[in-house]
Design a protein around this nucleic acid. Structure first.
Length: 564
RNA sequence: UGGGAUGUAGUGUAAUGGUAACACUGCAGAUUCUGGUUCUGCCUUUGGGGGUUCGAAUCCCUCCAUCCCAGCCA
């Protein structure tokens, strides 16, 4: 099979890179990018975009992409997050190989550079409190003013900084600041803090340090040390680019990387803020970072989304500088498109209605061949048991059929998928008028789902044999939020949580073949949706299936139009 | 109201001075042993105003709208 090279116009980053390559601006012609998450939470779909951009660019231009954990704030960072980040990137199918770095790897080097800056009179130790520093910084429209400590003698700065490092001072007492310009219209240049004192145990360096370098100082220098050529980040860092350029032009820093910004990914009905996601986890609105409703990579993985569909999705979204909101529908389209090709078809009845086939021999069992996937010509088939008592979905029978309904009703003939044609003859009701079961007759000539006379039936229902079915738990997941922009109307995103985001069906009936399904398998319950085995809670004796997403349902739309 | 960015169908993304397009959504129909899939068709677009030009989404001016920045977070 030929791998078709998708003809896609270049995005702005690719144009920049090709231009740089063409004009000899790339050392050794090797593009070096990096994906630099802070290990303070789980990666989410927004990160997939960044991962695909950075790893994708390196792949496309024959360069390399580093994984760098930006661990400069030990107060927020944890080893659990580092592990999950690595797992999630691997799941997507990207490999950073030996290029695994940590900002904390550079603490010594960074300290050295800071000392050099002090010696050159480009940095000073400031004793302003956080509040004072804020006052001195000025506002968006007014310039700031110099700290009284700005002209502290170099020797004193050197001594103080050393003592900060030695742990002689409490948190908040001193900072090291760059001497840039307190009157700059860009607030990031108003003598940004380079180091702060923090007594926190770092996941990697433990208690070795009590001063930690800030992002604006660490990131550009880390990029320079690693030989990054194109440092790609999101739009909110545009204002930091001058700070980035300031840092990479410090004397002694040889390599000069450049920063480029793209618009982060937003999807309606979803939240992509680590802070808010953390809140949902900590306050048990979801079962954890990997709750199948979470937009985290571990969440969508457990939900049953495939890495291929996620990559396809961010690819289709594209890369630009316009901040927009992508339709949830596009993501679901990508998921369905991929799953349609690969999901094994099974029959599962989620809301059972008993059908008794009166003219079928009592106690008899027949096995039919069921194709695993009609979209895949190489797909195999499996056996499905049929008997006199079967379940179909309640939805697939109507006592008084509405216009356009072509499923089972008294006198109507439908096909049982893979099996026989049946015609409903009567219903049995309990004392309250609820239908207990439907009686039907089958046509023995229709075995396998077709007849010699070639007559057409409009409806085909899935079904399971009552006595052969596997009983399992099915978790019907839906969007976590019911509003396009959670929190827009009330100001509180919690108000827009979808109360029906998880509906648990304690006892669903699934054809026996489902017993062989494992976590990671992609399944389709015919006419119900795409499903997977829950990777955490499913047990052989009590299987749990997650709904990945529904199938498109044009009948539901039609019903809605009819006001049903 | 300082600075930085961004405005192209409902949504996202192309077209860089030469016929405004692709995908998703929506709608209509055909096909179908999944009311799925597949196929066909339709709908709708350059924020406003001015200018340059034979010709402007593209260049210039101006207005408007939206987003980001005042952490010792990243």
């Amino acid at each position: 099979m030929e791998t078709e090279k998708e003809e896609r116009p270049l995005n702005f980053l690719e144009k920049i890179i090709e231009d740089d390559l063409k004009n000899g601006r790339v050392p050794n012609n090797e593009i070096v990018t990096r994906f630099p998450p802070e290990p303070n939470g789980y990666l989410h779909i927004g990160h997939i975009k960044s991962i695909c951009i950075n790893f994708g660019l390196a792949e496309k231009y024959g360069g390399r992409c580093h994984l760098r954990l930006d661990d400069t704030n030990p107060a927020k960072e944890e080893t659990e997050y580092i592990d999950s980040i690595k797992e999630d990137i691997k799941w997507l199918g990207f490999d950073w190989g030996k290029y695994e770095y940590y900002a904390s790897d550079y603490y010594d080097k960074l300290y050295e550079i800071a000392v050099r800056l002090i010696k050159e009179g480009q940095a000073y130790v400031d004793s302003l409190s956080a509040e004072e520093m804020k006052e001195y910084r000025g506002t968006l429209t007014e310039p700031g003013k110099n700290s009284p400590d700005r002209d502290r003698p170099i020797e004193e700065n050197l001594r103080l900084f050393e003592e900060m490092k030695e742990g002689k001072y409490p948190e908040g007492s001193y900072t090291l600041r760059a001497k840039i310009d307190m009157a700059s219209p860009n607030i990031n240049l108003r003598d940004p803090a380079l180091y702060r004192i923090k007594y926190a145990t770092h996941p990697r360096t433990g208690d070795k340090w009590c001063i930690y370098p800030m992002y604006d100082f660490t990131h550009p220098i880390s990029d320079a040390i690693e030989g990054i050529t194109h440092s790609i980040c999101t739009l909110e860092f545009e204002d930091h680019r001058p700070a980035y350029d300031w840092a990479t032009s410090i004397d002694g820093i040889e390599h000069t990387p450049h920063q480029y910004e793209f618009a982060r990914l937003n999807i309606n009905y979803m939240l992509m803020s680590k802070r808010k996601l953390l809140y949902l986890v900590r306050n048990n609105f979801v079962s954890g970072w990997d709750d199948p409703r979470m937009p985290t990579i571990s969440g969508v993985r457990r939900r049953g989304y495939s890495p291929e569909s996620m990559k396809d999705f961010v690819n289709r979204v594209g890369v630009a500088k316009v901040e927009g909101v992508v339709d949830y529908a596009l993501m679901e389209f990508c998921v369905r498109e991929d799953l349609n090709k690969r999901a094994k078809r099974l029959m599962a009845v989620l809301d059972p209605l008993l059908v008794v086939i009166d003219n079928y021999e009592d106690g008899k069992t027949e096995y039919f061949d069921a194709e695993d996937n009609p979209e895949d010509e190489n797909s195999k088939s499996h056996k499905v048991a049929f008997s006199k008592h079967i379940y179909i979905e309640k939805e697939d029978f109507m006592e008084n059929p509405v216009k356009g309904y072509h499923r089972l009703y008294i006198g109507n003939e439908i096909r049982l998928k893979h099996a026989y044609y049946i015609t409903a003859t009567s219903v049995e009701k309990d004392g309250e008028g609820n239908i207990i079961c439907v009686h039907a007759t089958y046509d023995p000539e229709s075995r396998g789902g077709t007849t010699k006379d070639g007559r057409k039936v409009k409806g085909t229902s899935h079904w399971v044999s009552k006595d052969h079915a596997l009983e399992a738990e099915v978790r019907q997941y839906d969007k976590l939020f019911k509003a396009e922009v959670p929190g827009l109307s009330t100001g509180n995103y919690l108000d827009d949580l979808n109360p029906d985001s998880l509906v648990v069906i304690e006892k669903a009936y699934i054809e026996e073949e489902a017993r062989n399904a494992k976590a990671g398998d992609y399944l389709q319950f015919i006419r119900n949706g795409y499903y997977c085995v829950d990777s955490k809670d499913s047990r052989p004796e009590h299987m749990v299936f997650n709904r990945t997403c529904t199938l498109k349902d044009s009948w539901a739309k039609q019903k809605a139009k009819l006001g049903l």
